[in-house]
Each structure stands twice: as C-alpha cells, then as structure tokens.
Amino acid sequence: MNEAYVTLNIKNGVGYIEFFHPNRNSMPSDILLKLKEAIEEAGLDDAVNVIVLKSGGDRTFCAGASFNEVMAVKTPSEGKLFFSGFANVINAMRTSPKLIIGRVQGKTVGGGVGLAAATDYCLATKFASIRLSELSIGIGPFVIEPAVTRKVGLSAMSQMTMDAETFFSAEWAKSKGLYSELFETTQELDVAITTLAEKISTYNPEACKQMKSVFWEGTEHWETLLTERAEITGALVLSEFTKNTLKRFR
C-alpha cells in the first residue's frame, strides 16, 4: 500500500471507517478532512448503527500529525488551520449520533492517542503502546488534551505529557481506561471487534443515540475550546525552539 486513503464500508449495520498513510499512518490535512467527512457521513447513514474506527496496515495505528506538514507551517494561521484538522475530527466523533468503537492494532503517538481517546469504546492488541511526544519537540498535546484527560484522567495525562519520550505500554493504557480489552493478536482483536460491533448494531438506534449524548455530556464547549487549542499549537510550532528542534528530525 503506497497511497493514502480513507474508506467507509458498511456491513451488517456496522460502518467500518479505515484511514491509511504510508508514513506510519501519519495524518496530513487531507486525510484529517476525509476522516472527518467519513465520520459525519456514517453518522447520517441509516444503514449504519455503530461505527468502527481503524487504520490500515498491521503495525502502527497512527503516528500523529504529519511531520512534513508541521515543518512546512509558515504562519500562525497556517498552524491553526492544520491543527484544527485534529480538532474537527475529535468534534465529529464527539457529536456523531452513532457509538464509535476504536480498533488499535499497534503503537500510537500524539494525535493518534487523541483519536483512541475520542472513541466510545476502544479495543487494542498488547502491542498498542502510546506516547505523547509533543512537549519534547516544543509544542504540546493541547488539542487532544480534553479527550485524553476525559478518558484517562489528569494524572495519567500529565504523566504522558511530561515523560514525552517514553512509550507507555498497552497494559498501562488499559489500566488507565483508554483501552477496555487487550488481545494477543490482530486476528483475535478483529474477531472481538466484529462480534461487539454487530451485537451493538442490533440494539435500539434511538437508545444508542441517547446514550451517546449522555457519554459526552458537558463537552458542548469543545467546538470552541479545541479551536482555541489549535491556535496555541499553531503559534508554538513557529517558535525558534520548535523550529530548531524540528530541523534535527530532517
């Protein structure tokens, strides 16, 4: 697989949304936009009763923001626009009337942790370690922080943010509530995902919709909050410290 994509496939009442990028499933602006649109499309489709969010390939779930695109940011407005892509995806997941199940098959970094946290129920393999590396390059996980803190708590969020060069194990992530279950293999994960999703797809859609609203009660201000956080990150990425740090990764 060499071409990036986002797809939506519907089977037995389940909308499987899959994203892929050849660079470890990193997220450039166009993929973020397509992912947001796919989530909204599935939310409006009566043939979809529950959504599964997954990535292509059998290793990294998501490497976070596209490094090349971050390095190409030249103005604060460009930075805000790029990081708003993550804000828009998280808000689309939050406001979707459909319950969203996350499938995390491998390591996930930065924005990918935010995606996992924004699902309503997340299953993973034992290889699905997580890292928030943003502070180590001069920015911070500002946009995804509300979603991650909501799921794992402020203490765990602070630990990951400050220990920015460490991968925390899948077992640690499960103990903090990010993952509900862990599996030895991707095959076992997929069986569990399909079984759970197809079971939920038979439930009363209106009950699921109302339950989704309850899960996300108190987050109505995120539409504004996450955009403000994108603006903070967009400015920080232009700082001399961050620019010099990013050059070392060329």
Rank of each mutant, 00 (worst) to 15 (best):
T227R: 09
S84F: 03
G234T: 06
L236F: 10
I51A: 08
A156H: 00
V6T: 09
V89E: 06
A116I: 04
A118I: 00
N244W: 00
M160Q: 04
V73M: 11
L115T: 02
H21G: 13
G64N: 08
L178Q: 00
L189C: 03
L123D: 08
A116E: 03
E206M: 05
Q187I: 13
A207T: 12
P97R: 02
K174N: 00
L81H: 15
K212H: 07
F82D: 02
K34P: 11
L182H: 10
S66K: 08
R131M: 03
E145C: 09
D163M: 02
A170N: 06
L44E: 13
A147F: 05
S96H: 11
V104D: 10
F61Y: 13
G153H: 03
K209M: 04
N68W: 14
Q210E: 13
P28H: 04
S136A: 06
T227H: 07
A192C: 07
W216C: 12
N244P: 08
E184W: 13
R250D: 10
A124C: 09
D163Q: 06
T185E: 13
I137M: 07
D45K: 10
A42N: 10
T202D: 09
N2R: 14
C62V: 01
V6A: 04
K36N: 15
E37S: 12
K11C: 14
L99V: 12
F167H: 00
T245K: 15
T195F: 15
A164K: 10
I139H: 09
E240P: 01
E18M: 14
D163S: 06
A118M: 02
